[in-house]
Nucleic acid binder design. Structure first.
Lengths: 220, 220
DNA sequence: ACTCGTTTCAAACGTCTGTTTGAAACGGTT
DNA sequence: AACCGTTTCAAACAGACGTTTGAAACGAGT
């Protein structure tokens, strides 16, 4: 890729504008202002707005490769799942800490463009397949279709809090929504999933009992 | 509300345009064309575009009240949950059968405006609370926070297939994605959830065994 | 038939958008 | 210093958009 500082400034300014305003909402004028460049710079360096958007998305995901940490080999699949869910919630879902790169990639998920192919290949699929590998260890008898449905069940539970946060908040009230913090959700989704797979106590047991007894004592 | 046929024509045309193009993408000209009316009709009858959008969303949900069917009193919570998930997937998620009303309401979920308050109060909350009631019967010892998190886990699993279908399809390929049809997903999400709550066999048992034996024989 | 409030219509307005243009500024080469 | 390819710049262009306007058409009440 290009290391031209001018193009880089434009790509970053474009990424931030596109992330906060969307493709239609962001204007070339605002992008060039933010980059401290002339209005014509975008069309000179990138041809047109669509091309700039595509390259901005690809550039953004290159700056956001922190998430994919391979699990240690001796990790149990249970703790690998917990790690994965925790990292996923923390980096992709947590509202307040979201960088514009992540916002941009989420926009691309819901409203995919030409850039989404690169995005899927280089950023999303590696994480998804890592999740599938964990699920295969947890669920060795499941076929591929089941594994994919299970992976979407995990991802869906997590992404919900990113894709529909304002409606969710309105639904149960801001206080109750705030109580569903990162730690609680990580624990909830992990236990929900593990219980569904038969690797942990189901939820219908009293919560206090569940907390009082360690998992290993009960599961063996 | 108004039974003025002119306003109704405009509301329906607006709903379809907003659903397929979004608020910014839809134009007053296209809406009036579709309604067979003059360009100035919108501003005369509704003031401005934003007001028209708000009323179109409310009008859409009024035309889409088919979903909320109260369960029969003697239904077991397990089959009530299966019914709820099935209806939810069928009416809200199924791509090919989605009406513009549903698309519009989903747009409002991800990108809420002033109209979302009415939408939540009259359309979303009743369904959500019905789901919560079912979960409380399945999980009588859970506190309110747990119930809400559980409800979001169910909703998140379902909505994922609506909110990020193109990325999901790209992720596992169109063939594999097509294999996750309505019937399979209903069964998957229901069993996943019931297993997490300890009301059904977990997934890590062989699928064939699971199918061969009826639930009642095993669960008592 | 006339009136008057309501509704429709064609036309225009002002603004904002992405894009183009042609000249100016720059930087290395001869 | 003259040259030339590259990059920057101010200005303008053309089109689309939401909105406004003022007159025409309509319809019920007198």
């Amino acid at each position: 890729m290009s290391h031209d500082p001018t193009k880089l400034r434009l790509l970053e300014a474009a990424g931030e504008e596109f992330a906060s305003k969307g493709f239609d909402g962001a204007t070339i004028r605002a992008i060039c202002d933010r980059a401290g460049m002339n209005l014509a710079a975008v069309n000179y360096h990138f041809g047109d707005k669509e091309n700039l958007y595509e390259q901005a998305v690809v550039h953004a995901h290159r700056c956001d490769m922190t998430l994919l940490v391979e699990p240690e080999a001796d990790e149990t699949p249970e703790s690998a799942l917990r790690d994965h869910i925790s990292k996923f919630l923390e980096h992709v879902v947590a509202l307040e800490r979201a960088t514009w790169q992540q916002v941009l990639m989420l926009r691309e998920m819901v409203n995919p463009t030409r850039a989404s192919e690169t995005l899927v290949r280089e950023a999303i699929r590696p994480r998804f397949e890592r999740l599938c590998r964990i699920l295969r260890r947890l669920c060795p008898e499941a076929d591929e279709r089941r594994i994919q449905a299970l992976a979407f069940s995990v991802v869906g539970q997590c992404l919900h809090y990113k894709l529909a946060p304002s409606i969710s908040m309105r639904l149960i009230g801001p206080d109750a929504f705030a109580r569903l913090d990162l730690e609680y959700l990580t624990d909830h989704i992990t236990r929900f999933t593990l219980a569904a797979l038969g690797h942990e106590l189901p939820f219908d047991l009293s919560e206090s009992v569940h907390k009082a007894l360690s998992q290993k004592e009960l599961m063996g």
